[in-house]
Design a protein around this nucleic acid. Structure first.
Length: 601
DNA sequence: AGGCTGTACTG
DNA sequence: CAGTAC
DNA sequence: GCCT
């Protein structure tokens, strides 16, 4: 006889890839859909951390109830591998064997108080069924948490179709196997080739559309995620020619001040850039996140006409060319570009001659080094600059660690600027450090300008607790800088001595480079490395994911809770900067992405 | 129908 | 505050 | 422009 189960809530995580199985289990177990009614939570989870993350998504903020002295915390290193595989959208292989049990001593019959919530391995359920009675839960306990607070019900934004809705589109004759992604093909373009002159929605046409849909290659599982931080996005992809067109339109929108348009095109570009096949149809494209009717129509035009009209217009619009010229000046954005244009200026010379003292200092520097800043920096030079910085850092205080981030770390053959993150295992070593570093670099004439210098992070970054409310603003001023944005120039060149002999003011021929130096306190250095390594969309989506899915706020200075700003430490433990970065991924429930897979624009 | 990353700087 | 940058 |  089947045992009687208490009210159970079933975690969907790791079952999402198999909606049918999920649905079957939900029926069979007779789950409750409100976690507050549940006495037990079951799931295909094996790690404490993952269990806690899933509870957090459901609006329950818990802290672990330690039931044994022995069980190591889940974030120790050898668990990483497992956690990395087990991510949101890349479920581990189906048919996970139940219960290789973690050794939990059954001494845990302490207080089964109502304040705690227990997450058990699903195997407890199947085992109990087989045994015909409820098995002791101790052997299956993955995580026991005490509810600290209920947080704003973090909306269970699903990236996949809920099982209950699944059968809805069965009007179609197509086998359901191909349709895990969307409710159906989206219509694209009111005048797309498919629908323009069709008299009516004839049945056979619907069917053939569906058949075409079913015949497409399956979408890679990671492209079910709308978050580019959950997808590998390599530097190059099979659809780069089309992407170039989209990027042109995107930049045109940028120059026109259409932020929303820029956003939309950025999302689409990021999705296509992570699609590993050469696109063959607009329908195929329309399945990707962020790619709707407009993007599909553009693809169709590009394919059939060989060009995209809006991109052509952008390319041939002389006014846009001028705006683009201005926009590429450091310190000039859409507004200033248009402002300059409206003054009748059409070239850099116009700015210099007619408006030099009306533009900002940043913009003056930007104009002065316009060509140099646009020159790409080869990898060797990036490495050279970074090694100088590290040498100087270690000369002041030994033991600094550095990661070169930015495009360099993503594997680009050349970079627009140099981003380095420096940290030191000794928390005190980073205090008041950047000022010293800058002074020593300036003394040796590596730095020609400071574009900005900021102390935002060190005020709370050095001490991430209690930042909400009122942190004292850095008293005394510049004792805790943590970010410098500089103009850099290698001070020596081969013929320097001779040149100076002939002319004491001989020009240094080395190209001026933009260099970002970030000093991070050790405890959040993984976040700094992560935050400075991804492409724009990757970083945007990372923040978005943290907020929407976890109720966390991510930035390069750390992870905090949305509601009270309390710091969340995801990096504790030994390890270098790269290990710490990995910990942040896994602590956020994300599969590890190599930097070369973060190549969103 | 509303939202789109989030924040510190400069002027 | 608007504008820019990361 | 796309998503929820």
């Amino acid at each position: 006889m089947a045992p009687t189960f208490p009210p159970i809530y079933l975690l969907k995580w790791n079952l999402e890839h198999d909606p049918k199985e999920l649905h079957r289990l939900e029926e069979e177990i007779d789950v409750v859909f409100d976690i507050k009614e549940a006495k037990l939570v079951l799931g295909k989870v094996k790690l404490k951390r993952r269990a806690a993350l899933e509870l957090r998504k459901l609006g329950l903020d818990t802290e672990e109830v330690v039931t044994t002295e022995s069980e190591p915390d889940t974030d120790t290193d050898h668990n990483h591998h497992e956690e990395q595989i087990a991510s949101q959208i890349v479920p581990s292989a189906p048919g996970n064997p139940p219960a290789q049990r973690l050794a939990i001593s059954p001494r845990s019959t302490l207080r089964p108080s109502d304040e705690t919530i227990k997450v058990l391995d699903l195997a407890w359920y199947t085992g109990s069924l087989n045994a015909g009675k409820l098995l002791p839960i101790e052997d299956y306990l993955v995580y026991e948490g005490r509810i600290k607070s209920k947080i704003l019900p973090v909306k269970p934004k699903q990236t996949l179709l809920p099982a209950q809705v699944e059968p809805r589109r069965q009007i179609s004759t197509v086998s359901p196997t191909q349709r895990h992604f969307r409710t159906g093909p989206r219509k694209f373009g009111g005048n797309s080739v498919h629908s323009s002159s069709q008299p009516a929605r004839l049945l056979h046409k619907t069917t053939s559309e569906d058949e075409a849909y079913a015949a497409l290659p399956p979408i890679p599982k990671y492209l079910h995620s709308p978050y580019s931080c959950q997808r590998p996005t390599p530097l190059h992809c099979p659809n780069e020619d089309f992407l170039s067109e989209l990027r042109i339109i995107k930049q045109a929108r940028n120059l026109k001040g259409d932020e929303v348009g820029v956003r939309a095109y950025s999302v689409a570009v990021a999705a296509i850039a992570s699609y590993p096949y050469s696109l063959t149809s607009a329908l195929e494209l329309s399945r990707l996140p962020g790619c709707g009717s407009k993007i599909s129509k553009l693809w169709q035009d590009w394919k059939t006409l060989g060009h995209v009209e809006e991109a052509d217009e952008a390319r041939s619009d002389p006014d846009l060319q001028v705006l683009d010229l201005f926009w590429k000046i450091h310190g000039v954005g859409e507004a200033s570009a248009r402002d300059f244009f409206s003054k009748g200026w059409r070239s850099l010379d116009d700015i210099v001659e007619q408006g030099w003292d009306r533009i900002s200092r940043d913009q003056q520097i930007g104009v002065k080094y316009y060509d140099e800043f646009l020159q790409r920096i080869p990898r060797e030079e990036v490495e050279k600059i970074a090694s100088v910085i590290l040498d100087y850092a270690n000369h002041i205080r030994d033991g600094f660690r550095m990661v070169i981030c930015g495009g360099y770390r993503r594997g680009k053959p050349d970079s627009g600027d140099v981003d380095v993150v420096l940290s030191h295992p000794n928390e005190n070593a980073t205090h008041r450090f950047l000022v010293e570093l800058l002074e020593s670099l300036e003394r040796d004439e590596y730095i020609t300008h400071r574009l900005i210098v900021s102390m935002k992070n060190s005020d709370r970054g050095q001490n991430p607790l209690n930042w909400k409310g009122s942190m004292p603003r850095s008293r005394g001023g510049f004792d805790s800088l943590d970010h410098a944005f500089l103009v850099w120039q290698e001070p020596t060149w081969p013929s320097k001595d001779e040149d100076l002999k002939g002319n004491p003011d001989a020009r240094n021929p080395n190209v001026h480079r933009r260099v970002d130096i970030i000093i991070s306190p050790w405890k959040t250095a993984g976040c700094a490395v992560l935050g400075w390594s991804g492409g724009t969309m990757f970083e945007r989506d990372l923040r978005h994911y943290c907020k929407q899915q976890l109720g966390f706020k991510f930035d390069s200075t750390g992870v905090r809770r949305q509601d009270n700003g309390e710091w969340v430490d995801l990096e504790k433990g030994d390890g270098d900067l790269l290990v710490k970065e990995r910990r942040v991924f896994s602590g956020l429930g994300l599969e590890w992405r190599d930097p070369t897979e973060r190549c969103t624009d």
